[in-house]
Design a protein around this nucleic acid. Structure first.
Length: 435
DNA sequence: GTTAATGATTACTA
DNA sequence: TAGTAATCATTAAC
């Protein structure tokens, strides 16, 4: 039992209340708890307020030491008075509790909890916010560069998660220790003054609420940290990364080998996305940008076009030859007989017409045909660029500057694209093999 | 620091 | 709803 205040006359002015959650203050005589557990305030339960220090007589103020307390405890009226006082305090306690304990769930706290759960900070660990990171990775392409970035993101998120849980554990431990400590003190006090179990329970509730508010601060700052991390790592616009060289090459190869109709179908986009390790929407963006920029400044892209055209020319030539040879082998008719159902190369217009029909429903095995068509585009371009090979493969150059119509569109009456919709055009539906 | 290139976004259109 | 055109925001080269 503490004897604070026994060394001299009491002061009527209370000292400033210490911060309650530091363990060093737990034994302080002036804990900022509500009145019933201002343990050192007074030593008696007779109705006088706490102006008399422990060990002093509560009427005369003279030192009477613990013999007085003993005398009081042994007083014949004590049990009766004690029980009356207990009853009064019980009623008071209930009314106070009734007013205090109807706490609706804090919406702010709920929001924080939900966010921490969604970000993978709280709740079961599944790779430290892998869901959020995976979603972000999918949104921003998921390339190898991004993978590195997202692993970094995950690492930092895991760090935040660890700090959060460590702090949370500390708070819980402190809360439990503090609660136990207070309960022990109250039990001790209940021998000499009326402290009911319900009152102790209420006090525990108060302590828990205090600690909950601190936990909310922790959750708040954790959320802020996660938001900052997200904005730094996952904001697609801020963190724009150039596609890898290989990806750009693949996209360019497709673009320049389909210059007559640079509108990849959904399937082609998916294939390209797969090859480039980017998303389909990124492929769409890339083609959208490329078409616009190409059209705006054809001259600037000429060199690039030549480069890619030359690069694929040899392959294209081989492919064409192979296709023709294959056709010769498999076809019951002779290659240049003009009969239906085969690739007739002597005239590009014919070929495109044939391609059109071949890409239709009547011919399911058009993969080769589309491939050949796209590569013939490339061949034409090379021929046009390298010297005016006047039209073994087509009188009208199908190379793109001429494919842009007066309205700035890609479709041209002389090209197959004018016959079919962009997404249905030759070289688009089955063109993924062109790479 | 400047500038061109480039990926993403937005408003609009057919 | 896909595509266009303009624009933004960032990167990379100088």
């Amino acid at each position: 039992m503490a004897t604070a205040g026994g060394a001299g006359p009491p002061s009527t002015v209370s000292p400033p209340l210490p911060w309650p959650f530091e363990r060093s203050n737990w034994d302080s005589p002036s804990l900022p708890l509500s009145r019933p557990i201002r343990l050192q305030e007074r030593c008696d339960w007779s109705g006088t307020r706490g102006l008399v220090p422990r060990g002093y007589h509560f009427l005369t103020g003279r030192a009477g030491k613990c013999t007085r307390k003993h005398a009081l405890n042994c007083h014949r009226m004590k049990p009766a008075l004690f029980s009356v006082l207990c009853e009064i305090k019980e009623k008071t306690g209930l009314s106070i509790r009734g007013a205090q304990e109807e706490d609706p769930p804090d919406p702010q706290l709920m929001r924080l909890d939900n966010m921490l759960l969604a970000e993978g900070v709280s709740g079961p660990e599944k790779g430290g916010g892998s869901a959020a990171a995976a979603a972000a990775a999918a949104a921003s392409g998921g390339s190898s560069d991004n993978s590195i970035e997202h692993s970094d993101y995950r690492a930092k998120l895991t760090q935040i998660r660890q700090i959060y849980h460590t702090e949370l554990e500390k708070y819980e431990q402190a809360c439990n220790e503090f609660t136990t400590h207070v309960m022990n003190l109250l039990r001790e006090q209940s021998r000499t003054r009326p402290i009911s179990p319900k009152e102790i329970e209420r006090m525990v509730g108060i302590i828990h609420r205090k600690f909950s508010s601190i936990q909310m601060q922790l959750k708040q700052s954790t959320c802020e940290a996660v938001m900052i991390l997200r904005s730094r790592f996952l904001d697609a616009r801020r963190k724009r990364r150039n596609f890898s060289k290989q990806a750009t090459e693949i996209l360019n190869e497709y673009f320049y080998s389909h210059l007559s109709n640079p509108y990849p179908s959904e399937e082609a986009k998916e294939e390209l996305a797969k090859k480039c390790s980017i998303t389909v929407s990124q492929v769409s963006n890339w083609f959208g940008n490329k078409r616009i920029r190409y059209k705006k400044n054809i001259g600037k892209f000429q060199e690039e076009a030549n480069l890619y055209a030359a690069k694929t020319a040899v392959t294209a030539a081989h492919a064409v030859a192979a296709a023709v040879q294959n056709n010769q082998t498999n076809s019951p008719t002779t290659p240049n007989s003009g009969s239906s159902g085969s690739f007739n190369l002597p005239n590009s217009g014919d070929m495109f017409m044939n391609m059109q029909s071949l890409n239709g429903d009547s011919y399911q095995g058009s993969q080769v045909g589309a491939n050949v068509q796209s590569q013939v585009d490339t061949l034409r371009h090379v021929i046009n660029q390298t010297g005016g090979y006047s039209d073994g493969l087509g009188g009208n150059s199908l190379y793109s500057p001429h494919n842009l119509n007066a309205n700035g569109g890609w479709q041209d009456a002389t090209t197959p694209s004018s016959v079919t919709s962009p997404t249905e055009g030759p070289g688009s539906v089955h063109s993924d093999t062109s790479n």
